[in-house]
């Protein structure tokens, strides 16, 4: 069992922006979802975990080894897919994977070849393995990204917004791949898409304005809201007045009309229907609670 302990981690950038504020998390094997709106500090946390930047305060330890003192330890066991990445022009997928595998310490050339081939098959890139990565489409590139993150023997896999820009099919395939691996190691998935977390993650945390707002198993978090979510179909023009009167979690257009979901302990008003809470409600409720 792998354990990643994040203790009192804060990060302030030289320009004064405070990106992370006193984050505490303990993550073990399995898929861990990190949810938060843009600018919540997800990428900052990810980069800090990936040793690309040091935290201003606090400790991160992986399997009891402190990563500030010994970043090499985490790097050895790390698979990292950054939010956005480019590649050198004119270098093929195969060449680049080979290079990265070597950097990650896969020295035996036979094993390296086998692993790369397996990854190329699994990410469905085998047919284009000799093409330059710079010519890949967005989805292919993202799959390449995950392939490289899996090179070697990673025990901690960090994927930052991996499904952004992928079509639904690509996204599905991607999710399958991740969940296959997630059983043996820690996979941290950062996203602002609630559905991804719902489908994949056994544990999750919500981040907002650099603070940890909530954490736990998604089902338990949903349980907290059980019976408190109400929905109603309203006219578009009325949204503002509802927003001022009620704790509106979300609004969704549905065949020209607006369906709003409201958080309340009891039926707020006639016309509101009790609805089964889902993870999205949890997410918005958490954010609303902190005024985010």
């Amino acid at each position: 069992m792998n354990t990643l302990i994040i203790k009192n981690v804060s990060k302030t950038y030289p320009n004064g922006v405070s990106a992370l504020k006193n984050i505490n998390l303990t993550i073990t094997n399995g898929m861990f979802g990190l949810l938060g709106p843009n600018g919540a500090g997800k990428s900052s946390l990810m980069r800090t975990l990936a040793t690309l930047q040091e935290s201003t305060q606090g400790n991160i330890s992986f399997n009891d080894i402190n990563s500030n003192d010994n970043p090499q330890n985490i790097r050895k066991q790390l698979g990292y897919l950054p939010q956005e990445f480019g590649v050198y022009p004119k270098i093929s997928a195969l060449q680049l994977l080979d290079h990265l595998a070597i950097l990650k310490g896969v020295l035996n050339s036979k094993e390296r070849k086998e692993q790369i081939e397996a990854l190329l098959h699994q990410t469905n890139l085998y047919a284009v393995r000799k093409k330059a990565v710079s010519t890949f489409s967005g989805g292919m590139r993202q799959r390449f990204g995950i392939a490289q993150a899996l090179l070697g023997n990673p025990k901690l896999i960090i994927v930052d917004e991996p499904t952004a820009g992928l079509d639904p099919e690509e996204r599905n395939r991607f999710h399958n791949l991740l969940s296959d691996i997630g059983e043996q190691v820690i996979v941290i998935l950062s996203t602002h898409i609630v559905e991804d977390v719902k489908n994949l993650c056994s544990k999750m945390a919500i981040l907002g304005k650099g603070e940890l707002l909530a954490q736990g198993e998604p089902s338990k978090l949903i349980l907290n809201l059980d019976g408190k979510v109400w929905s109603k179909t309203i006219l578009k023009e009325d949204l503002d007045s509802f927003k001022s009167k009620f704790n509106v979690l979300s609004s969704r257009l549905s065949s020209g009309k607006l369906e709003i979901r409201v958080l309340a302990d009891a039926q707020p008003k006639v016309g509101f229907v009790a609805t089964k809470a889902d993870l999205e409600d949890v997410y918005f409720a958490t954010l609303n609670q902190k005024n985010i």
């Binding site: 090499q72 050895k76 990650k104 310490g105 896969v106 020295l107 035996n108 094993e111 390296r112 086998e114 692993q115 081939e117 397996a118 990854l119 098959h121 699994q122 469905n124 890139l125 085998y126 047919a127 284009v128 093409k131 010519t135 890949f136 489409s137 292919m140 899996l150 090179l151 070697g152 023997n153 990673p154 691996i181 043996q184």
Partner: peptide
């Protein structure tokens, strides 16, 4: 832009590989 052709008939599956970092050889 290249697109990947579907290619499902592969039987190799991914498994982690041992790594070595600190050796001189590495």
């Amino acid at each position: 832009q290249v697109t990947s052709e579907e290619n499902k008939n592969s039987n190799s599956t991914y498994k982690p590989t041992e790594i070595s970092i600190n050796s001189f050889k590495s």
